[in-house]
């Protein structure tokens, strides 16, 4: 394989990996505040994309207004979901909560099918479709948007953790919930915030990817799965790990298309995931936690 080809695969890997990273971040935030794996995470992506389509093509809003409004609406959906379905069960077993998120993902997905139909929909790329050449590989501008916005989101999240009281409280909660509670941190508003942020991150991923790969009601499950895999690969609970894991997964997947028959592309990604888990049972950047007796 030639260098420019390799580069091309890596670039497309980074693009899809950035999307996985945003989804993985969503998983991580909710996991850190509740220990729950939110299996409806991928639906936030779908709604982000589809609502933007409706606002742009349907309501005729300018592209950036449509995108922004869509993210806000999905954030609110996340808030409502937390209030109605998660809050009442917060003291019950994790498994119960996970099944609630399964129910939610089925519900969201099929409502989306009724509203938007089965065909994939799209919005225009944020700044045109003319590819940029880079060492023999061509980059579409939307890819730069995807990677750039993902990085900005990650940096903002880190600043939020480090600089704001709420962010610090959120971090404290993720390290030790009981201790955080003793220190007077209101963990229930932290949970709400984590759902809001996760939904927002999902929606951001949705509006970013819509111009490249289109959005259809049914892609939430598969995107959620990749995001979950990325989060686990990096070490569940570690936001930086989520980003690294997501992007790594994207690159591996893309390279395996280049080297192996494309039918096996997903198999390779999962095989690597299994190997990482078996060799490092808590992910690449995960801490090894031991129970004290």
């Amino acid at each position: 394989m030639q260098f420019d080809q390799l580069l091309q695969f890596i670039i497309s890997g980074i693009t899809s990996g950035s999307i996985y990273a945003l989804i993985a971040l969503g998983f991580t935030l909710i996991y850190n505040s509740t220990q729950v794996i939110n299996l409806a995470q991928g639906e936030f992506v779908v709604y982000g994309g589809l609502i933007a389509v409706s606002l742009y093509a349907g309501a005729g809003l300018p592209l950036f207004a449509a995108v922004l409004l869509s993210i806000i609406i999905v954030t609110l959906i996340g808030v409502v979901f937390e209030r109605l379905a998660i809050r009442p069960l917060i003291n019950h077993s994790i498994m119960t909560l996970i099944i609630v998120t399964v129910g939610a993902s089925i519900l969201f997905k099929n409502i989306a099918m009724i509203i938007w139909g089965r065909d994939p929909l799209t919005i225009p790329a944020f700044s045109g479709d003319d590819p940029i050449m880079f060492f023999g590989a061509s980059i579409i501008p939307q890819s730069i948007w995807v990677f750039g916005i993902t990085m900005v989101t990650v940096v903002l999240l880190q600043l939020f953790y480090k600089k704001t009281i709420t962010g610090k409280a959120m971090k404290a909660c993720s390290i030790n919930q009981t201790a955080a509670k003793l220190m007077g941190i209101n963990s229930s508003s932290i949970v709400l915030l984590s759902f809001a942020l996760s939904a927002a991150f999902g929606a951001i991923a949705g509006v970013l990817i819509a111009p490249i790969s289109m959005v259809s009601y049914s892609m939430g499950g598969f995107l959620g799965l990749k995001g979950f895999a990325g989060a686990v690969l990096g070490g569940l609970g570690n936001p930086i790990g989520a980003v690294v894991g997501g992007i790594l997964l994207g690159i591996l997947e893309s390279l395996s298309i280049g080297f192996i028959a494309s039918g096996y592309k997903d198999a390779v990604a999962f095989l690597i995931l299994l190997l990482v888990l078996f060799l490092r049972p808590s992910g690449i950047l995960g801490a090894r936690i031991k129970e004290k007796v």
């Binding site: 379905a85 009442p88 069960l89 019950h92 077993s93 119960t96 909560l97 099944i99 609630v100 399964v102 129910g103 939610a104 993902s105 089925i106 519900l107 969201f108 997905k109 099929n110 409502i111 099918m113 009724i114």
Partner: peptide
């Protein structure tokens, strides 16, 4: 038909909210 899974998902959530065990 189309509402099949919408109802299923809703029932699943309600079932867990009211019968978490």
């Amino acid at each position: 038909n189309d509402y099949n899974l919408v109802i299923f998902g809703a029932i699943l959530i309600l079932a867990m909210v009211f019968m978490p065990q």
